[in-house]
Amino acid sequence: MDAQGQEKFREFVANRSPALLRTAILLSGGDEHAAEDLLQNALIKVASRWNRVEEPEAYARQVLYRQQISRWRLRWRKRELTVADLPESAARERPDNDADLRLTVRRALSRLTPRQRTVLVLRYFEDLPETEVARLLGCSVGTVRSTTHRSLARLRSLAPELSALGLSDVPGPSGAVTPAEVGP
């Protein structure tokens, strides 16, 4: 990469890393360290193809998704579910502010399977159509639909306090949760 390309890449990283990191955090279930690793690996791949990539952010997001898919496909070795809080302390009456809402959504997303979490992040936080999600995940549109349906049902059961707020379609483009609100 020439000097001009390096400068443009540095600008890209400075400008787009926060948004890409938020997506990586959602994809990794709230594990910020895993998200940072995911983003760093994606940026390495973007840098190696910088001169050939027309849409660097789209390419970076695709690398993030595919790396996360590879991680959860290989996760068969590790069956343990790790959570930050014990289940007893995770139950709340009602989140009083946006920070509590973000934490509640993040906690609930982290308890979904990696596949469920990935489908919800792609569909609702990245606002991709079902056909694009199916293409990225290498499955059929019907699989995306059924996984989305089951994932939302599980998310609602994991975080019933969200429906008490009137956010019955959480997460979703019409709901009160956006990628910026769920981010770090």
Rank of each mutant, 00 (worst) to 15 (best):
R61I: 14
R52W: 00
D96H: 07
A60G: 04
S89R: 11
P56R: 12
T82C: 06
R94E: 14
E54F: 00
L103G: 00
T82S: 07
L81K: 09
L81V: 13
P56L: 13
V63I: 15
D100F: 03
R71T: 07
S89G: 01
D96S: 09
A58H: 07
R71F: 08
R61Y: 13
R71A: 10
R71M: 08
L101R: 10
S70Y: 02
R73P: 12
D98W: 03
L64E: 14
Y59M: 04
L64T: 05
P95C: 01
L74G: 15
W72N: 10
R92L: 10
E54R: 05
E80W: 03
A84H: 04
W76V: 13
E57G: 03
W76F: 13
A91C: 02
L86E: 05
E57S: 08
A99F: 05
E88K: 02
D96K: 09
N97W: 09
A58P: 01
D100P: 01
A84R: 06
E93K: 06
R92T: 07
R77P: 09
K78A: 11
K78P: 04
W76K: 13
D85H: 06
R79D: 11
D98K: 00
E55S: 08
E55I: 02
S70H: 14
D85G: 01
Q67E: 15
V53G: 01
T104K: 09
T82M: 07
R102Y: 01
E54M: 00
A60Y: 07
E80V: 11
Y59F: 15
D100W: 07
D98E: 04
W50N: 03
L101N: 01
A84F: 06
P87E: 08
D85R: 10
A84Q: 03
Y65H: 03
Q62A: 15
A99L: 10
N97G: 14
R75D: 11
A58C: 00
L81C: 01
R52V: 04
A60E: 02
A58D: 07
R61W: 09
R92D: 02
A58V: 07
V105P: 12
E57K: 12
D100N: 07
L81Q: 13
V53Y: 00
V83A: 14
Y59A: 11
I69F: 08
L103K: 00
E88R: 03
A84N: 03
Y65E: 12
R92I: 13
L101Y: 00
L101C: 05
V53F: 00
S70R: 14
I69W: 09
L103V: 02
R77Y: 14
S89Y: 04
S70P: 00
T82Y: 08
Q68G: 02
P87A: 11
R71E: 11
N97S: 12
R71S: 07
W72P: 05
W76G: 11
A99Y: 05
N97F: 06
E88S: 04
A58M: 06
P95N: 04
L74C: 05
K78D: 13
R71D: 11
Y59G: 02
A91F: 02
A84T: 04
S89M: 05
A90T: 12
